[in-house]
């Protein structure tokens, strides 16, 4: 951990390379494993890549949603505040599985036939909406932590409200919000497993299928668990390094 603090750039690079190597190289060592793992190595690798893709897409969209909703909650315009508060209340008060099923089953009936969306997209949308609501709280707390005097100083210098937000408020609030956002992202790696319910072939679904064919649930689920652990560890180190990178100004 000390090493990541001293060389955050290098640590991020290493975690990124490690993750990529793992995603595209894992099938090789897995194929050496005894059956039922060895013969399904390719499937595990594809499922893992699907899980990571789902996490990255919904995680990115979730940060954007979180910033919008977090800002909305602090807005001086009442309707924006109401919409943001309603969104957060709705998502945090209902189960994620229900949200995924809702997007998968209910949304297509609302859309015209020409605009149907894939199972993967349904899962990504539901997960993004979900993590966005949790991110909104972190972003709001982060924005509130930026000293108001700095905002006043920026405005007094002639920066527009938007410039003030981008140059002063956002970077500082992100530094505060980042540990919590990173936590949410690590949970998202795991939460994405619920996409198996709508037949997205991600890691958990692969595990389910392989054990159903082989009747050997224990080695299969242990393998899946180890892969999830590697993924969450990689994401956590990535965000820890990013945090140190952003930690300038607090250095003594």
């Amino acid at each position: 951990m000390n090493w990541t603090k001293q060389h955050p750039g290098l640590a991020m690079f290493a975690a990124m390379i490690g993750l990529l190597l793992f995603l595209w190289g894992m099938a090789v060592p897995l194929s050496w494993a005894p059956d039922p793992i060895g013969q399904a190595a390719q499937q595990f690798a594809e499922g893992t890549r699907m899980t990571v893709l789902l996490t990255l897409i919904s995680g990115t969209a979730g940060v954007v949603l979180g910033v919008l909703a977090g800002l909305g909650k602090l807005s001086s315009v009442p309707p924006l505040r109401w919409i943001s508060e309603f969104y957060v209340w709705l998502i945090r008060g209902t189960p994620l599985l229900l949200q995924i099923l809702f997007v998968w089953l209910a949304v297509p009936t609302l859309l015209p036939d020409s605009m149907q969306i894939s199972d993967f997209a349904c899962a990504a949308i539901a997960l993004a909406l979900n993590i966005g609501a949790y991110n909104a709280e972190c972003v709001r707390a982060g924005i509130l932590a930026v000293p108001h005097g700095q905002v006043e100083a920026a405005r007094a210098l002639g920066l527009s409200p938007f410039q003030t937000f981008v140059d002063i408020t956002l970077p500082q609030s992100m530094r505060v919000a980042l540990p919590a956002l990173a936590n949410n992202l690590a949970s998202l790696v795991k939460d994405s497993s619920l996409a198996y319910a709508i037949s997205v072939v991600e890691l958990t679904m692969v595990g389910y299928r392989v054990q159903a064919e082989s009747y050997q649930p224990i080695p299969v689920f242990v393998t899946i668990a180890v892969i999830y652990l590697i993924l969450t560890t990689a994401f956590t180190s990535l965000t820890a390094a990013l945090e140190s990178q952003l930690d300038v100004g607090r250095k003594r």
Binding site: A153, A154, A156, L157, R175, G249
Partner: peptide
């Protein structure tokens, strides 16, 4: 009109140089 505050209100995430250079660049 420039302003100097009691509590300085420097931008804590920016270097001293960037603190001074920011407004001329943006504005």
């Amino acid at each position: 009109v420039g302003m100097v505050f009691q509590s300085f209100n420097l931008f804590s995430h920016l270097s001293i140089l960037r603190n001074v250079a920011l407004a001329p660049m943006r504005v």
